[in-house]
Amino acid sequence: MNGPFYINGWIGEEASLIFALVIGVAFGFFLERAGLGSAKKLAAQFYGTDMTVFKMMFTAIVTAMIGLFWLDLFGVMNLELVYLTPTYLAPQLIGGLVFGVGFIIGGYCPGTSCVAGATGSLDGWMNVLGMLSGILIFGELYPLLEEFYNATPMGELTLDDYFQLPSGVMVFVLVMVALAGFWASGKIESKTPSKNEFKS
């Protein structure tokens, strides 16, 4: 096998779009199954009553991260060819804080608002409308924001490069961090009485 297939020309443009649709269906399905189409469940993450967001997100990250490591190691795919968003430290730090504030006010992130809307949540659709407006505002202000948007560029940078560790060691460290987080999540949930009636 010689991945990534699209980059190596094994599948074409049209097929990639059909693949996108299928991947999206699976993505939306798992988000809804875990309960992440519910604003109350998402918000509960930040009041310590339900750690589903953290648990699901970090399980997914760790699963894909370990998978990528093995696929690359056994030569199934070339990790070098996977697109890596360049790091811009300041706008990504500030962007994250702003995102977090918007997340707890609105109750959704971009993907989950779509899932909420698809299951009939009108507040989910309001959130999507808000996002479209926010993007438009950002676009209109872009000439003013451009300088900060491109500030502190660090290029394509991975954590193992930054800490100068072998990638396998970095994967191991992050898996340990995730496991510690899962253990702490259980502790936090058992200490805070759940007010969330959606909890199963």
């Binding site: 990528l68 968003t85 609105g106």
Partner: peptide, 28 residues
């Protein structure tokens, strides 16, 4: 909330999917 979140997303070049999940797995 959606408006604020979108603004943060655009500043950061991605959201919980494009940055946190995707970039998280790539150790970006």
């Amino acid at each position: 909330g959606g408006m604020i979140m979108a603004f943060g997303t655009k500043l950061a070049r991605g959201c919980t999917s494009g940055q946190a999940l995707t970039g998280g797995a790539l150790m970006n």
